[in-house]
Design a protein around this nucleic acid. Structure first.
Length: 488
RNA sequence: GGCGGCUUAGCCAAGUGGUAAGGCGACGGUCUGCAAAACCGUUAUACGGCGGUUCAAAUCCGCCAGCCGCCUCCA
C-alpha cells in the first residue's frame, strides 16, 4: 500500500509521490526562540518527528529541515523587557528547546537553519521579488505586493477581497494593499540590523522560511508542515513569495497539525493556562506524553487534562509490562510452533495504518493488541512450555514491535526494568519516602507473611499505599510501584 | 460577516458505502492468604436531530441544532 497524506492545499488525502523518486525534502516551521516551549510545540514537533522517522523507515532518503526563528519582534520585545541582548536571549531559548526535545526523544533534523545565518539568501530572494515586480520599497521597508500573485489564498481557501472586507487587517500607510506584508523591515534605533540594498534592517517573518527551505531543499520540494494556525497567513505568504520569485510550484504537500486545548479551553497567555513541556515532564514520563500526543489523530484537536494524561501513563506501563513478559517468554523457549494472529505481521499492519495519513491511534491499537496477546500466552502458559511459542518465533515479534514503537513512535525506548525504575525513582522525592524505607517495610511484611500474620502484612501494605506506594506480589517475589500522582 | 472543521459507549478515541478498532473506567469470573498485576467475559441493535440517495450509510447529499478553529502574534 502506498502512503497517503492529507494535503491542506487540496483538502484531501493524496497518494504521496515525491518530486524525486525515493527522496523526500521536508521543511517544518520551527519555533521562535523567545520563551519556553509548551505542549502545543510538543505536539507539532513530535508529530513531524514521527513522520520523519516513518519516512526514513519506509526507505526514503529524507532531508528534514526545521528552522529556528532567531530574530523577530517577539524576541526583540522580550529582550527589551528582561534587559538582555536579543541574540543571547535567542541563544538561551535554543538551548532550552533542545533540553525539552531531547527529553521527549525527538530526533535532530538533517538541517536546523537559523534566520540570522541566512540574511544573504533572504536579501537575494527579496531582490528577485523586486526585480520581478512582486515587491516594492517603502521607507526602508520592502513589501510583498499580494495583488501581483493571482493565486494568493489558494492554501487557506481565502479570497483577497473577502480578507480586505474582513477589515481586521492592519492599516498601514506604507502598504499599497492592506494584505501586503513585510519582507524586510527597516531597523529602528537599537534594533538588530543588517545592511541591505534598502538600508539597514532585518527580515520579515515569512521570508526566512522561503529562503531557507529553498536553500536546502530546492525550489520545489515535497512536504511543508507546521501548526494549523500557520496556514494563514504564514504559509500562504510563503507560497506567494516563493512561487512569485521562482515561477514554479513550491511545496507539494502541506501538513498541518491540530491544536492542544487545556481542559477544554484554548491555551493562551491571556488565560494563563499555557503548559510548558518542562513543567509537564516533572511529573509525566516523556514517553507518556508522547503516547498521549499520538493517541488521537494529528489533525484533530487534542485536550490535555488529568484523565487523558493518566490514561496515557497507564497505557504506557501496560505496554512496558507486556514487553517484560515477552522477554520472559523468550527465556522459556517453548514448544508451540504457532503465533496468535495479533503477533503476526505486526510491522506490515503497522505500516498500513501509518500509510493512511499517519493514523497513529490505529497504530497504537496494533501495539495494544500485541500486548494483550503476549500477556495471554504468559497467563495461559504458567510453566506449560508446550503453550509458549519457541524463541525463534518470539524473537522476531519483539524486534517487530520495537521497530514500530521504539524506532518510529519513539515509545518503549527503554528496557522494561529500567523504565519501571525510572518511573518510581522520579516520584519518590515528591512522596517523601526513600527506597530504603520501602524495602525495609517490604522485609517486615515478608516476614509477617511467612509467619502467617496477614493482618500485620496487610497493615504494612495499606500504610505504604497511603504514602503512594503499591506492592504487588508476583511469582518472582514482591515488587513496589508508585501510584499515579495527581497531575496539574 | 467570510472560510473551514467537529458531534461515535461512563470517559478518551479509530472507523468515511457492507453491518461498530484500541485505551481508560465499571461489573462478573480465573489466579492470589487477601490484594495488585495479568487473563477471560460483560459494558454503543448503534454512531447529534430530521429528511433523502442506495440492495446496503456512522460513512454520500440536504436541512436543523450544538461545539470549535482560522480570518491579528501564535504549534
Amino acid at each position: 500500500m502506498a502512503l497517503r497524506i492529507y494535503n491542506t492545499l487540496t483538502r484531501q488525502k493524496e497518494e504521496f509521490l515525491p518530486v524525486e523518486s525515493g527522496k523526500v525534502g521536508m521543511y517544518v516551521c520551527g519555533v521562535t526562540v523567545y520563551d519556553m516551549c509548551h505542549i502545543g510545540h510538543a505536539r507539532s514537533v513530535v508529530l513531524f518527528d514521527v513522520i520523519y522517522r516513518y519516512l526514513v523507515d519506509s526507505g526514503f532518503q529524507v532531508k528534514y529541515v526545521r528552522n529556528f526563528t532567531d530574530v523577530d519582534d517577539k524576541i526583540i520585545n522580550r529582550a527589551n523587557q528582561v534587559g538582555e541582548d536579543w541574540k543571547r536571549l535567542a541563544e538561551r531559548f535554543i538551548v532550552e528547546f533542545y533540553t525539552d526535545m531531547d527529553a521527549l526523544g525527538v530526533l535532530r533534523p538533517t538541517v536546523e537553519p537559523r534566520a540570522t545565518e541566512h540574511i544573504d539568501q533572504i536579501e537575494a530572494l527579496i531582490g528577485q521579488l523586486i526585480d520581478r515586480g512582486h515587491a516594492y520599497e517603502a521607507d526602508g521597508d520592502v513589501m510583498f505586493a499580494v495583488n501581483s500573485f493571482n493565486e494568493y489564498g489558494k492554501l487557506s481557501g481565502k479570497k483577497t477581497d473577502e480578507l480586505i472586507a474582513g477589515a481586521r487587517v492592519e492599516v498601514d500607510a506604507k502598504k499599497r494593499n492592506p494584505l501586503d506584508f513585510a519582507l524586510w523591515k527597516a531597523a529602528k534605533p537599537g534594533e538588530p540590523q543588517w545592511e541591505s540594498p534598502w538600508g539597514p534592517g532585518r527580515p520579515g517573518w515569512h521570508i526566512e522560511c522561503s529562503a531557507m527551505s529553498m536553500q536546502y531543499l530546492g525550489k520545489e520540494f515535497d512536504i511543508h508542515g507546521g501548526g494549523a494556525d500557520l496556514t494563514f497567513p504564514h504559509h500562504e505568504n510563503e507560497i506567494a513569495q516563493s512561487e512569485a520569485a521562482t515561477g514554479r510550484p513550491f511545496a507539494k504537500y502541506w501538513i498541518h497539525n491540530g491544536f492542544v486545548n487545556i481542559r477544554s479551553e484554548k491555551m493562551s497567555k491571556s488565560l494563563g493556562n499555557v503548559l510548558n513541556i518542562r513543567d509537564i515532564l516533572q511529573r509525566v514520563h516523556p514517553e507518556s506524553l508522547r503516547l498521549f500526543l499520538l493517541s488521537s489523530h494529528y489533525r484533530s484537536p487534542l485536550d490535555y487534562n488529568e484523565t487523558s494524561i493518566r490514561e496515557a501513563s497507564v497505557g504506557l506501563e501496560r505496554l512496558y509490562a507486556a514487553m517484560a513478559a515477552l522477554d520472559e517468554l523468550g527465556e522459556v523457549d517453548g514448544k508451540a510452533q504457532q503465533l496468535p494472529e495479533e503477533l503476526i505481521d505486526i510491522r506490515e499492519r503497522f505500516s498500513q495504518t501509518m500509510d493512511d495519513d499517519f493514523n497513529t491511534p490505529r497504530s497504537l491499537a496494533i501495539l495494544f493488541d500485541a500486548a494483550r496477546a503476549v500477556n495471554r500466552i504468559a497467563t495461559q502458559a504458567r510453566g506449560a512450555r508446550k503453550l509458549v511459542p519457541s524463541r525463534s518465533l518470539l524473537e522476531p515479534v519483539k524486534s517487530e514491535i520495537l521497530a514500530c514503537s521504539r524506532d518510529i513512535l519513539g515509545l518503549l525506548t527503554e528496557e522494561p526494568a529500567g523504565f519501571l525504575d525510572h518511573v518510581r525513582k522520579a516520584h519518590l522525592k515528591d512522596l517523601g519516602i526513600t527506597e530504603e524505607e520501602i524495602l525495609s517495610f517490604m522485609d517486615q511484611r515478608s516476614q509477617a507473611r511467612k509467619d502467617k500474620d496477614f493482618a500485620r502484612a496487610d497493615k504494612i501494605r495499606e500504610d505504604l499505599a497511603e504514602r503512594g506506594i503499591l506492592l504487588e506480589d508476583g511469582p518472582k517475589g514482591t515488587i513496589w510501584k508508585v501510584k499515579e500522582l495527581q497531575q496539574s
